[in-house]
Deep mutational scan, measured.
Amino acid sequence: MLDDRARMEAAKKEKVEQILAEFQLQEEDLKKVMRRMQKEMDRGLRLETHEEASVKMLPTYVRSTPEGSEVGDFLSLDLGGTNFRVMLVKVGEGEEGQWSVKTKHQMYSIPEDAMTGTAEMLFDYISECISDFLDKHQMKHKKLPLGFTFSFPVRHEDIDKGILLNWTKGFKASGAEGNNVVGLLRDAIKRRGDFEMDVVAMVNDTVATMISCYYEDHQCEVGMIVGTGCNACYMEEMQNVELVEGDEGRMCVNTEWGAFGDSGELDEFLLEYDRLVDESSANPGQQLYEKLIGGKYMGELVRLVLLRLVDENLLFHGEASEQLRTRGAFETRFVSQVESDTGDRKQIYNILSTLGLRPSTTDCDIVRRACESVSTRAAHMCSAGLAGVINRMRESRSEDVMRITVGVDGSVYKLHPSFKERFHASVRRLTPSCEITFIESEEGSGRGAALVSAVACKKACMLGQ
């Protein structure tokens, strides 16, 4: 009897593995994704193909990295998701002549009506938060230079001027797309009239992360975010950046690689679950690469896999709870928690219980395998993109072996128990001629924006502006 049951459990697990095998990517698959990513990057950089390229390769006008001589107080704003952060950054000489960066910050959550109302409502709310922060720190009387981390696709015309191309991540505030974001912020500050600010720089969160990590390690020339969304930036040779005049030196390019796949480059790798996630998203047909990796989508992918296993009578005796059938019910943090389970399955059992399920031991094991399959594919897909960037940098610099540091931020990278190990191992397999160091950014977005502002202020002083 026991043997029969054991055989049935083994057969069930084997069927589960057959279904989950769809998520496995072979090294040849990853090399294919990497080569296609490089081709799209090239198209994004070139003037004649930029418009139709899915990977936009947006110039950021960040050319210099901090040298350690900029000092002063800077205000930093960070808008990239449902939370908005205001930070005071003091850049100065530390002990023994070292450079020191001290920060104080406060988080504000953005109400739904500000995210989806008008641009005026959104930026009025942001300036209200700045006003509140300055009151708390008794700094209303000071006109501070301000660095703005704005983590949406922007076409820069200068370091302090950028046109919002399109909202992502659930934002829909009308009247912002096609307009200068810094102008919208300046107008809102003017409307309030109770404080003055000098907006000197606007950067993407990947750029802010790279600059913040450069402060720790001067070989950091790539910034990457794996959180709600997924994106990367890197220092490109100016001669390859056709959208900006000049051939000397390097400029940081914001790849906006989340949109890779929007022209069909990933079609052969998309599964039924991916198509369902895409169809029910706020932007169907867009940001397809990001939807395979980002935390906004990972939990939902797992939920759809679990429903398939229920329908195949391989999980929960073929019956799903009402909660499990509800879109968004299986949160991405559950994926991390399930994979963090120590082996007694308590954590998995508790999560499934909150979803109205009474799982068996085998159910718990199957749910864990589903989570591992989805998150491992995410790590491997992400590795193909980064390997594409790094191999490109090595080739354009004609280096036999390139040493490089990548600064990384984002909740999936930082909080998932195995993502970074799987990701690092896969990147290294795909970049055999590179020695890569990964560092995690601390308060990256805010500190990085302030350091970019410090560079901009120093330049302005040198130019006598």
Rank of each mutant, 00 (worst) to 15 (best):
Ala232Trp: 02
Ser64Ala: 14
Asn204Val: 07
Leu276Thr: 14
Ser445Leu: 03
His156Pro: 04
Ala176Tyr: 03
Val62Glu: 04
Ile19Arg: 12
Val374Tyr: 05
Leu288His: 09
Ala201Gly: 05
Val338Asn: 05
Leu270Arg: 13
Tyr297Leu: 07
Ala119Met: 12
Asn283Arg: 14
Gly328Val: 12
Leu324Asn: 05
Cys252Gln: 06
Asn240Ser: 15
Met41Tyr: 04
Pro59His: 02
Phe23His: 01
Ala173Tyr: 00
Gln337Gly: 11
Gly80Ser: 00
Gly246His: 02
Leu309Cys: 15
Asn231Gln: 00
Arg333Met: 04
Met8Glu: 10
Leu146Pro: 02
Lys169Cys: 01
Lys15Gly: 13
Ala449Glu: 01
Asp29Ile: 06
Lys104Val: 12
Met107Cys: 06
Ala173Trp: 05
Gly97Trp: 13
Glu93His: 12
Asp400Val: 12
Lys56Val: 03
Arg191Gln: 01
Asn283Met: 08
Lys142Trp: 01
Gly343Phe: 06
Glu331Arg: 04
Thr65Ser: 13
Met210Ala: 05
Thr437Cys: 12
Arg192Pro: 06
Ala454Thr: 05
Gln347Met: 09
Phe260Ala: 07
Ala378Glu: 01
Arg325Trp: 09
Gly388Trp: 00
Ser174Val: 07
Gly294Met: 06
Val408His: 05
Asp274Gln: 00
Gly44Ile: 03
Ala282Ser: 14
Ser396Phe: 10
Tyr234Pro: 03
Val222Glu: 01
Cys129Gln: 04
Ala259Gln: 08
Leu47Ala: 14
Gly147Ala: 02
Ser151Thr: 00
Arg7Asp: 12
Lys458Thr: 15
Met462Glu: 10
Phe150Asp: 04
Gln24Met: 12
Asp198Ile: 10
Ala379Gln: 04
Arg186Met: 06
Ile348Ser: 12
Lys12Asp: 12
Glu372Gln: 04
Phe195Arg: 04
Leu306Trp: 05
Val367Ser: 10
Gln219Arg: 14
Trp99Val: 14
Val455Gly: 15
Gly170Cys: 04
Ile404Val: 09
Leu415Gly: 07
Glu245Val: 14
Phe423His: 06
Val408Asp: 00
Ile439Asp: 10
Asn179Leu: 07
Arg447Gly: 07
Ala329Arg: 14
Phe334Leu: 14
Arg403Phe: 10
Val200Met: 04
Met210Phe: 04
Thr49Arg: 12
Ser69Trp: 14
Gly92Ala: 11
Ser426Thr: 10
Cys457Phe: 06
Asp132Phe: 03
Ala53Glu: 04
Phe133Glu: 01
Arg250Lys: 15
Tyr125Leu: 04
Ser109His: 09
Gln323Tyr: 12
Tyr234Leu: 01
Ser375Leu: 01
Glu120His: 07
Leu75Arg: 04
Val71Trp: 15
Asp78Leu: 05
Leu270Ile: 12
Ser340Gln: 08
Ala232Phe: 01
Leu164Pro: 01
Glu242Lys: 01
Val226Gly: 03
Arg392Lys: 13
Leu266Gly: 03
Ser263Asp: 14
Ser54Pro: 08
Asp158Pro: 01
Ile390Trp: 03
Asp135Met: 08
Ala425Gly: 11
Ser360Tyr: 12
Leu243Val: 08
Ala282Thr: 14
Leu415Val: 07
Asp42Ser: 13
Ile404Met: 13
Glu442His: 15
His50Glu: 02
Ala329Tyr: 10
Gly97Cys: 12
Ala208Ser: 03
Leu164Tyr: 02
Pro432His: 10
Ser212Thr: 03
Val277Trp: 01
Tyr215Arg: 15
Ala454Val: 07
Glu290Gly: 02
Gly147Ser: 03
Met251Glu: 15
Ala208Arg: 11
Arg325Gly: 14
Val154Tyr: 02
Ser398Cys: 06
Asn180Ile: 09
Glu157Ser: 04
Leu134Cys: 05
Ser109Val: 07
Phe123Val: 02
Leu309Thr: 10
Ala21Pro: 05
Gln286Thr: 15
Leu355Tyr: 10
Leu430Ile: 10
Ala10Glu: 10
Asp400Gly: 11
Thr437Pro: 06
Gly94Asn: 01
Gly444Pro: 08
Thr437Phe: 12
Ile189His: 03
Arg155His: 06
Ala176Thr: 05
Val200Leu: 08
Ser396Trp: 05
Asp205Cys: 00
Gly81Ser: 02
Thr116Gly: 07
Gln239Asn: 03
His416Leu: 12
